[in-house]
Design a protein around this nucleic acid. Sequence first.
DNA 1: CTGTTTAGGTTGACAATGACAACCTTTCGA
DNA 2: TCGAAAGGTTGTCATTGTCAACCTAAACAG
Lengths: 202, 202
Amino acid sequence: MNQSVTPYHHGDLRNCAITAAAELIETIGSYDITIAQVAKRVGVSSPALYRHFKDKDALLTAVRELAHIGIMEYTTNAQESVAPGTLAHIDALGSAYLRFAMDKKAFFGLMWENHGDADERRAEARAKRTGFQVLHEAIELYLREQRPESVENSLQTATLLWSAAHGIATLQHNRLLDTFDQNANAEFMLRTATRAILKVDV
Amino acid sequence: MNQSVTPYHHGDLRNCAITAAAELIETIGSYDITIAQVAKRVGVSSPALYRHFKDKDALLTAVRELAHIGIMEYTTNAQESVAPGTLAHIDALGSAYLRFAMDKKAFFGLMWENHGDADERRAEARAKRTGFQVLHEAIELYLREQRPESVENSLQTATLLWSAAHGIATLQHNRLLDTFDQNANAEFMLRTATRAILKVDV
DNA sequence: CTGTTTAGGTTGACAATGACAACCTTTCGA
DNA sequence: TCGAAAGGTTGTCATTGTCAACCTAAACAG
């Protein structure tokens, strides 16, 4: 015997569904997907997914986790070739953020949609805080070495810088940077903002 | 005779539908509304709305226009008590933006969703550019008087400042400012960013 | 006036979607 | 070995966006 074709129990449906959803989102370039599409892609009936996810939103929340991992990969890679605590380090983080926003448009959009129940929201907040931590530490290191008198403000500075990066990324995402300033260059803008906020002369 | 109750022809269904949708969005605090809800609120059958809007998205686009008008009201009010071209003027504009984002959460979220066809998109881009113009002019005036050597960069400065404001507003909107920095204060952050960005040569 | 066109309503139908209930089929532990 | 639980299936439902077919009031030409 040993036919072994498509066993009744999938074995890893939960994870397959998540990656299938992610792939789907990436290929159609929008996170407006349906349960049926995901089920079909993974070769299973729609209701099967409800054994693993409370509802559609729970599935999307899981995909959001993937997106967080993705952005972490971008920043980790960006950090490899820069000395910790330098301005270049901070630039690299920002640039990675912008690049992720453009490379993975649909994911980036999805990440900031916040539906989902309270638990899911808490988990996501934690993931985001972890990402933020990386920036915060880089800035703290930088300030400690370059402007020790400002080290106490590192948290506020990091929050502000993240806001700037997020604003630039979001506006670019919505094609508004071009609308406002035809020659706008997101990366250059962020570098400018970074220097301004860190109070460094260009 | 002269009953005159609910004439067959509504008379102004298009506009009523738009405001009904806006009210609905405001009361439920989310722009996830249905055609049926809007139709019911205005006392008409769902398909009636399709005589006035190509599809649901066209209705939402019309509501977005309302939102743009709303934000303009906020900024216009904010400008009344400040001298043009002062730092206070720029602060007032930013503060109005933040206030709108918090007061009208659902509207603010809706404004940056961009589905809709090309024409609708163009119209919205124009509306946004109009809003941006106000900030741009204030900044140009400010620079002309305070830092004439930087006037040529007014457009880039305005774009950057808008980005910062937008980032702060968006993060606050998603309750992420608190997540990153428990003591974060959006308005203070924006004032800080404003001062930093205005002092830099782009 | 009268009749016809047309704008703007109505009901009824449809497909797609999210979700659930009822049921069947493996897997696994006592 | 057998029964429960895990994890599938089909069938069904309400909601939603949307359309087609139809009706009715208003507007306007003759």
